[in-house]
């Protein structure tokens, strides 16, 4: 019993203490940016967000990320999570239906035009930083109008920010909303 206790405590120190400290040490020393959460600094040197984490955008001058169920207002990076609504849950159908209407209205789409799924469904983490190129392109007109710049310019910016499949195989083509919006702000 006593030897089992000693045995357990030693393993606790190795696995729970030594190991994470070692990984963190290597990470902090060699890959400091990633190890601290890929935090992006603004021109003023203050952090404005993480490359990997979606943040809320509601202004027309910005591309908008996927809906979020993290926290009461969404995009709360201390309360990650999805809606966990069942496909047959009436709440899901009505809220998606509302978002479809809002998205069409906001971006001036025809009332019967199908809306990209990623634009109206909540992501798993609530912090999905990306939207699909299709979704981004549908927002170009609105953003360009609000920013009072030519559509082609915004369009080009989106195209430039499309991240393809890794090695052409893994994942989905996508556009990082924060990076795109940041680039737009830095454009002038």
């Amino acid at each position: 019993m006593l030897s089992s206790l000693r045995f357990s405590v030693i393993l606790l120190i190795i696995c729970g203490g030594f190991y994470p400290v070692l990984v963190t040490g290597i990470g902090q020393a060699l890959f400091n940016y990633q190890a601290n959460g890929s935090i992006i600094m603004g021109k003023d040197g203050k952090p404005i967000g993480s490359e990997h984490i979606a943040q809320a955008f509601d202004k027309d001058i910005y591309f908008q990320p996927r809906p979020s169920a993290a926290g009461p207002d969404g995009y709360d990076a201390t309360q990650s999570g999805g809606s966990n609504l069942a496909p047959t849950n009436a709440k899901l159908i009505s809220s998606v239906s509302d978002r479809v209407a809002a998205y069409r209205a906001k971006n001036g789409l025809a009332p019967n035009m199908p809306v990209p799924a990623d634009a109206v469904t909540a992501s798993g983490s609530g912090l999905d930083p990306d939207i699909s190129p299709a979704n981004a392109f549908l927002q170009v007109h609105r953003v360009a109008t609000a920013r009072n710049v030519p559509e082609q310019q915004v369009q080009a910016m989106v195209t430039q920010h499309i991240e393809g499949r890794t090695l052409g195989i893994f994942g989905e083509p996508r556009v990082n909303v924060l990076m795109l919006n940041l680039a737009l702000d830095n454009m002038k």
Binding site: G82, N84, V100, A117, T121, G124
Partner: peptide, 13 residues
């Protein structure tokens, strides 16, 4: 009115 080409995206990344 959701485009189904992406599949079921609720809860997905």
């Amino acid at each position: 009115g959701v485009d189904s080409t992406q599949g079921n995206m609720e809860g997905k990344e």
